[in-house]
């Protein structure tokens, strides 16, 4: 079923509860051969340069399409595990001051810890592969970085080159790298705690953050062209070309396969 991904500020309380409960359920119940911790494993594995000498998920052109596929799979799995085909991943527009860290949604923070209520251990949220020795989800909101402003987002969005050689974290004139560093990294650091770590999907706000990143890429695509991924079909070594499969996703799950979200059963409101 096609879903409309909304700003979390536009969600009804029933939608917020359904989303949180589906995540919790997916921690302990598998769907489509995966469970929640599978996603954390993939994030850690594919953050690194894998044995094919490709960096699939970060610091490379496939940053955007890899996470698009990653979110699409999670959305599908949440719909399956909850039996609710209307479940969608909401987005968090971090240029506005309303935060999702509330007791009725992603959990409130006390002295850096989510220690009671939603996403606390007592509620049913366990951490997985935490590099910080704790059983409580950690957030250090605003301690290490500020939120991007609307004008900073606009500056990044106005870049015209999708990406270019050497296709990594050093490229200056690259929409992908500027978005990844100036917006994406910065918000991970703004939330801090587990969101700043390799195992960041332990924090459910990971999905809302990346949903907004995906929305920004989609907005960029609607201006610059939907099929504008670089590098195009070819033999560029060390990176994912437009028609090359992104690991760990199934055969054919290439940047080209995810370039048009209308073919992926979701849209943005």
């Amino acid at each position: 079923m096609a879903v409309v991904r909304k700003n979390f500020t536009a969600m009804t309380s029933a939608e917020k509860t359904a989303f949180a409960n589906a995540l919790r359920q997916f921690k302990t119940t598998s769907a489509n051969g995966r469970n929640y911790n599978w996603y954390i494993d993939q994030h850690i594995t594919f953050f690194a340069r894998t044995t094919d000498n490709i960096s699939h998920a970060h610091q490379s052109p496939s940053f955007f399409p890899w996470h698009r596929e990653y979110l699409r799979l999670l959305e599908l799995d949440l719909q399956t595990v909850s039996g609710n085909p209307g479940i969608f991943i909401p987005y968090w527009d971090w240029t506005v001051s309303t935060l999702p860290f509330t007791s009725d949604f992603l959990g409130s923070v006390t002295n850096g810890s989510v220690s009671s209520g939603n996403f606390s251990p007592a509620w049913g949220w366990s951490l997985y592969r935490s590099s910080i020795a704790t059983s409580f989800l950690q957030r250090r909101v605003g301690q290490n970085a500020t939120r991007p402003t609307a004008s900073q987002v606009s500056t990044v969005q106005s870049r015209t080159v999708y990406d270019q050689s050497p296709w990594n974290s050093t490229v200056s004139n690259s929409y992908r790298n500027r978005n990844e560093i100036e917006l994406h990294n910065r918000v991970h650091n703004y939330v801090g705690g587990h969101m700043g770590t390799r195992e960041a999907p332990n924090d459910p706000c990971f999905w809302l953050h990346h949903c907004n990143i995906d929305r920004l890429w989609w907005l960029w695509q609607t201006v610059r062209g939907l099929d504008t991924y670089q590098p195009r079909t070819g033999t560029t070594s060390g990176v994912v070309d437009n028609n090359e499969t992104m690991r760990p996703f199934g055969a054919g799950r290439s940047p080209l396969a995810v370039h048009d979200i209308s073919a992926l059963n979701y849209s943005y409101a």
Binding site: A48, R49, S131, I132, A133, T134, Q143, G192, G196, R198
Partner: peptide, 18 residues
């Protein structure tokens, strides 16, 4: 500063290549 009152876990010692 990021850890506050907490400590690193064994997971933090695992290497990672980029």
């Amino acid at each position: 500063d990021m850890l506050g009152d907490l400590e690193l876990s064994d997971e933090a010692a695992k290497a990672h290549t980029h």
